[in-house]
């Protein structure tokens, strides 16, 4: 009986004391060091993407993310919380700490072109306010392209196309002439307005296009264009190509607009196509970036880009048809 009693004691220890001591130790640790550790595994999308892809933390909680990659180099960014890890090398563990100071859902994403499906590598940090764990969803105004009913799936070719690439520098000479809301109207619209102005009759089409280029550059500002260039290199170039011609390596097999209409261009948009780019208003481009292209392969960026980043990216896109030097 003594032997059985001993064996039974050991088994009870395994089933009761052992688990209790594990959870007890964690409880004690949490009291001593209130930083909550969360492991985040960055897997290529084909292997499951972010694990976990939803991280729930409490408002005010101090969190340490331990991010590792089992396959290729990834990046990590939570734009709305200002958290970023530039490089997660396979085998290495990157740690980043933050305190969630406002409740809400904050998307995060990989910032390295880890695979053809890189853009699908996204997740959400959900910061929950224990006092109000289920807040009513905030209603935000629909984006302007929706308010203005701009059909972003239709082609908007420019009515006017310059014979040469307009130069913002030359256009500075006519700085006072360019006017109008540059986000609502397309460059082609603005050019048409200038051309219709009798006082500008003496100026050639080319000069007026230069003025339009200047207007866009001036409205954007050099800093925004520079930030847009960085965003483009990080998030867009793999598909749309470094030159903006829609010839990026990752985008080669994407259907593009042909997914909607077989007569349309196949593959990512060509930003050097003056007819399309000059016919598109900034709002139209914003809509495409916000929502993404249904079935075209273009991801949505609404959850990852701030408004400012969105406009910065669009500012840079204009440089493919306007000479901003």
């Amino acid at each position: 009986m003594k032997k059985e009693f001993f064996a039974l004691t050991v088994v009870l220890f395994i089933f009761v004391i052992f688990p209790a001591s594990l959870f007890g130790y964690q409880r004690w640790r949490t009291n001593v060091d209130p930083v909550r550790v969360i492991d985040l595994s960055a897997n290529a999308p084909a292997s499951g993407g972010w694990v976990p892809d939803t991280i729930r933390v409490n408002l005010g909680e101090r969190v340490r993310l331990r991010i590792s990659s089992p396959d290729v180099v990834h990046g990590f960014q939570v734009p709305a919380l200002g958290i970023s890890v530039d490089e997660i090398l396979p085998g290495h563990v990157e740690q980043v700490e933050f305190t969630a100071m406002r409740a809400g859902r904050f998307p995060f994403a990989c910032t390295r072109w880890c695979s053809a499906d890189h853009w699908r590598m996204r997740g959400v940090i959900q910061v929950i306010d224990p006092a109000n764990p289920n807040p009513a969803p905030q209603k935000s105004a629909p984006p302007l392209y929706q308010q203005l009913k701009i059909d972003i799936d239709a082609m908007h070719p420019a009515a006017n196309v310059p014979s040469a690439r307009p130069s913002a520098a030359r256009g500075a000479l006519l700085a006072s002439t360019a006017a109008g809301d540059l986000r609502v109207g397309s460059p082609s619209d603005v050019f048409a307005n200038l051309r219709a102005d009798a006082t500008l009759k003496s100026h050639s089409d080319s000069q007026l296009w230069d003025a339009v280029a200047f207007a866009w550059k001036h409205a954007s500002g050099d800093a925004a264009i520079a930030r847009g260039r960085e965003l483009y290199a990080r998030d867009c170039a793999a598909c749309h190509g470094e030159s903006g011609q829609g010839d990026g390596l990752v985008g080669r097999n994407l259907p593009g607009m042909a997914a909607m209409d077989s007569s349309m261009r196949r593959g990512p948009a060509d930003f050097t196509d003056a007819a399309q780019m000059l016919g598109a208003s900034d709002l139209l481009l914003q809509g495409k970036i916000l929502r993404g292209g249904m079935g075209t392969g273009m991801p949505e960026w609404r959850t990852l880009y701030t408004d400012e980043e969105m406009w910065d990216a669009i500012s840079f896109l204009r440089s493919f048809v306007f000479d901003y030097k």
């Binding site: 064996a7 050991v10 088994v11 395994i14 089933f15 052992f18 688990p19 594990l22 959870f23 969360i38 492991d39 985040l40 595994s41 694990v51 976990p52 590792s68 089992p70």
Partner: peptide, 22 residues
Amino acid sequence: AITLPVFLLAILTGFFGTPAGS
């Protein structure tokens, strides 16, 4: 008595531990 706690720990960590497999 050696394999049982390991098995138990495998189950507990699966249910309550990190979802990151590695």
